[in-house]
Amino acid sequence: MKILIVDDFSTMRRIVKNLLRDLGFTNTAEADDGTTALPMLQNGDFDFLVTDWNMPGMTGLDLLKKVRADDRLKNLPVLMVTAEAKRDQIVAAAQAGVNGYVVKPFTAAVLKEKIDKIFERVEG
């Protein structure tokens, strides 16, 4: 299971990375916005994408849309972990095809629950 973590703040990437490690996912890579993440996704064999929304360069929502528009990536599970908490935004992310949505600040238990749920659905 190879996971790409995208966030412009290195501390948040580190927190997510540590939580994923505690959940048994040790194969992770990091990118600081959509612009750097997209080529990594296109060239790497990632199984899962965890992305922030508000980032300079390409935002997480635009990255999600690009992923869904890419034939090779369109089925990649995407979890959004973000401070964006408006109903319109969550609806927009859902319409763009997000698989899970976690609002910051979050707990390890919430992150685990969402990841489990996504894989249950992907595998089931």
Partner: peptide, 30 residues
């Protein structure tokens, strides 16, 4: 509708109608 919706950063006023107050609200909405 669903187009170019902008990132706004953390919402300070969680009491607003169009803002979710917690992860439970997000889950309900989804």
């Amino acid at each position: 509708e669903g187009e170019n919706i902008a990132a706004e950063g953390p919402q300070i006023d969680k009491s607003s109608e169009d803002v979710v107050a917690s992860q439970d609200d997000v889950d309900d909405l989804l």
